[in-house]
Amino acid sequence: MSELLSWWAVAPWQTGQGGYFWALLMGFLVTASCGLVGNYLLVRRLSLMGDTISHSILPGLVLAFLWTGRRTSWVMFVGAVIAALVTVFLVDLIQKGSRIKQDAAMSVVFTVLFALGVLLVSIFAHQVDLDQDCVLYGEIAFVPLETLISVGGVSIGPPSVVRMGIVFLFTLVSVVLFNKELLLSSFDPGLSTSSGYSAQKIHLGLMAMVAIIVVSAFESVGAILVVAMLIFPGATASLITDRLNYIHVLTIIQSALSTLGGMYLALWLDTSIAASMVVVSMCLFALVWFFNPSYGLISTLVNRGVSKDKTLETE
């Protein structure tokens, strides 16, 4: 019993430099940032856009890296954001200028840009310190190994966590500040534009935000799992509530739960933290889906019999 307790409560916080605290915090910051911005992708029916951007920023990252030669540089951010905006522009161009629909346009653009990125990585392999596994899967477990940043002698944390913390705050502030604009332009772009909040500008801003968050989350969770972080929290939350701001709050809670759960699962199975977090997210989603009283699968199945009778009555 005491052995279990020490595994459960003590071990994760002791090992390595600062233990798992930083990895845990990083996991939460990544999931919460992705979740908040992902909620808007979800309600705009642009979930595939997360996929699209997370893959197509690769050439932007590589080119920015080749240009500056440094991996932690802010130039990489700029490179990724530019690549994301180019992606959005190309998708729009194909969609409006041809008979190809949006989903096909996104698929075409992101695979081509990703392929371009892969070519660049392999051509400049000797110069590029971006390994392909890292790009695809990421690794949170490396976070505690980083040298802590210190400001004026006080160490504040590993650089990647500090950066993600800034991105999280930026996301949170944007969602609060632009709450009404994001809501209206997502729900009714026509009224948004005609009320003086250009839906197109807000869309571009949102996509830039997705790019910034995805590129910051990249090292931790990779290009594939980041899509789960974008969509799972909101998808789970929208089974429980039907107001966007409540979905945001639940997203934060879901992020904390899936990070904590993922950490323990990874510890138990001695495996990837990011992948474990996604598995836990899936479990949370399934739990909510089955057992939710208002929109759950079970209550829907039970109610189906009841409502059949009701419809007959009212008609």
């Binding site: 009224l191 003086g196 107001r243 979905i247």
Partner: peptide, 16 residues
């Protein structure tokens, strides 16, 4: 299916 209720939608009329 958008996560808004009646009040939210009507309030949007005031955004302009």
């Amino acid at each position: 299916d958008f996560p808004v209720n009646v009040f939210d939608v009507v309030l949007m009329g005031r955004y302009g």
